[in-house]
């Protein structure tokens, strides 16, 4: 087992871990979106490495010469697909983030969530259950403006 392989596999799992950590730990929406992109990159790298072989040539025939050992073309095609899917979702996520920022004036997910719960409660015509995330000052300000 060559060391390059270990390094690459370690990198793939590392990217996956960093991505998950970013999603779980950060509160800023744009950071979370980039953490998702990192997680996807890790998954793609792992897929590419699934049948990776040290020293395999690209699976392309140039001037009729067939290489002795060619890389597996399937994961390369799969990763191409997965990357394009990721780009589409990333663009949509950023458009949504733009609108959320414009509506609530913040990208902090705790704040966004509180505003959203408030919106849902207002529309439904029920009181909002007091949230443990909301600072007390904001809640009193809301009550005053509502009164």
């Amino acid at each position: 087992m060559p060391d390059t392989g270990l390094l690459l596999y370690g990198g793939a799992f590392g990217l996956i871990l960093i991505g998950i950590a970013g999603i779980v730990l950060s509160a800023h929406l744009v950071r979370i979106i980039f953490a998702v992109a990192l997680l996807e990159a890790g998954a793609n790298l792992l897929l590419l490495l699934a049948t990776w072989h040290q020293g395999a040539a690209a699976p392309i025939i140039v001037a009729g010469r067939v290489p002795d050992l060619m890389a597996d073309p399937v994961p390369q095609a799969l990763v191409l697909t997965a990357i394009v899917i990721g780009v589409g979702i990333l663009a949509l996520a950023l458009s949504l983030a733009l609108r959320v920022q414009r509506a609530y004036g913040t990208l902090d997910m705790h704040e966004v969530r509180r505003h959203m719960e408030q919106d849902i409660a207002d529309e439904a015509g029920i009181d909002m259950p007091s949230s443990s995330h909301a600072p007390a000052a904001v809640q009193t300000a809301r009550q005053e403006s509502g009164a």
Partner: peptide, 20 residues
């Protein structure tokens, strides 16, 4: 196709590409 990745992308797995 001389490029086998293209053969996979458009031939063997062309359906994936359409969905993509």
């Amino acid at each position: 196709a001389a490029n086998f990745v293209t053969a996979v992308v458009l031939g063997y797995r062309g359906f994936d590409t359409l969905l993509e």
